[in-house]
Design a protein around this nucleic acid. Structure first.
Length: 297
RNA sequence: GCCUCGGUAGCUCAGCCGGUAGAGCAAGGGACUGAAAAUCCCUGUGUCGGUGGUUCGACCCCACUCUGAGGCA
């Protein structure tokens, strides 16, 4: 039996994924599954560049606005829910289109990442977090020499996570790069000249501010404070500094621009590693429809 | 027209007595296994405005020249 096709669109922020996905959905009777770690949060619309109802043009979107800004969320939950979405979309006789810039979330669908055998232990994390980097890394070295070599002592988050995994009894190393062959994934990556991409990012930040980003951030900040995970999003965390009088509004906007540029670079690094991605230079297309057409095999 | 101060990395600037240069920011590269827009690692990219001169050797001294800012007329 022919495997079912799942379309995937990746790329750095501001590369045009949202519009391309909607255009593709219109062409192939698709539904969109957002793979974006920040668009899952309600009340954070402008800064996360969520598509508006109008932009969606009637295309069904999943995995957007699914939790409150102060709710816990993780890849594990994303994977479970997104895989459910894929199943249901097929049942409706439609085609899933996974689109997003969160590499880990994308990989949780297109690779065989298994999050069911390990746990998440908040108490342990807090305990370990009190130790210093060297101590912690030594602890890991004693338990798992290989991981200790791979993970830098300063990358505390990863050292702790690794110790947490060991704590849950799983000691075998699992492969990060075993492709998920359950479906036929057709993965397109949107690329643009770096300079042009940066110009678009700068422009988009300005647009976001014009559209009321600061008020939106203030709303979330007033309700939940600045320490929740969702407030770590670019475009929000910088504004916290502004609210707390640490920086001026101009400095804050410049910071958002810079951090978004750096983020785009990190996304590119992540996606460039995946050789299954078929890269499309967006500047070669005069309109979104043509671009979407080029993604269909 | 004269005087003063400047011209060194993408930007802002250091550079002691002459031994061909270094900080911050920006930038580039990479990692990534339940926070991932997070977290972390690595890297100086340069005709020192130009042309001559002095010198074994010039970013540094001298002359001329181009250029920017200010001052005096």
């Amino acid at each position: 039996m022919m495997k079912q096709k799942v379309y995937v669109i990746v790329g750095p922020t501001a590369s045009g994924k949202t519009a391309a996905a909607i255009e593709l959905a219109k062409l192939i009777n698709g539904e969109i599954i957002s793979a974006d770690s920040m668009q899952i949060y309600k009340k954070m619309n402008i800064g996360t560049a969520k598509p508006t109802l109008k932009e969606m043009q009637g295309i069904v979107h999943h995995m957007i606005d699914i939790v409150e800004p102060d709710d816990d969320f993780s890849v594990a939950m994303f994977q479970k829910m997104a895989k459910e979405c894929i199943k249901e979309i097929f049942l409706r006789g439609k085609t899933p289109i996974v689109v997003g810039g969160t590499g880990l979330y994308i990989n949780s669908i297109t690779y065989l990442l298994d999050f069911t055998k390990t746990i998440h232990d908040e108490v342990l994390r807090e305990k370990l977090n009190k130790m210093d980097n060297i101590q912690l890394h030594q602890l890991l070295k004693n338990a798992d020499e290989q991981s200790a070599q791979r993970i830098h002592p300063n990358d505390k988050k990863r050292v702790i996570r690794r110790l947490e995994i060991l704590q849950s009894g799983k000691t075998d190393s699992y492969d990060f790069d075993v492709p998920n062959t359950e479906h036929q994934f057709i993965i397109s990556g949107l690329s643009t000249d770096r300079k042009l991409l940066y110009e678009r990012i700068n422009q988009r930040v300005d647009d976001m501010v014009q559209n009321g980003l600061i008020d939106e951030a203030k709303c979330v900040y007033n309700q939940y404070g600045g320490k929740i995970t969702s407030m770590q999003a670019i475009g929000y965390k910088e504004i916290v500094g502004f609210f707390e009088d640490k920086i001026s509004q101009e400095e804050c906007i410049e910071l958002i621009r810079r951090n978004t540029r750096r983020f785009a670079k990190r996304q590119l690094t992540w996606f460039c590693r995946d050789e299954r991605i078929n890269w499309i230079n967006t500047t070669e297309f005069s309109n979104m429809k043509e671009l979407a057409q080029s993604m269909i095999k």
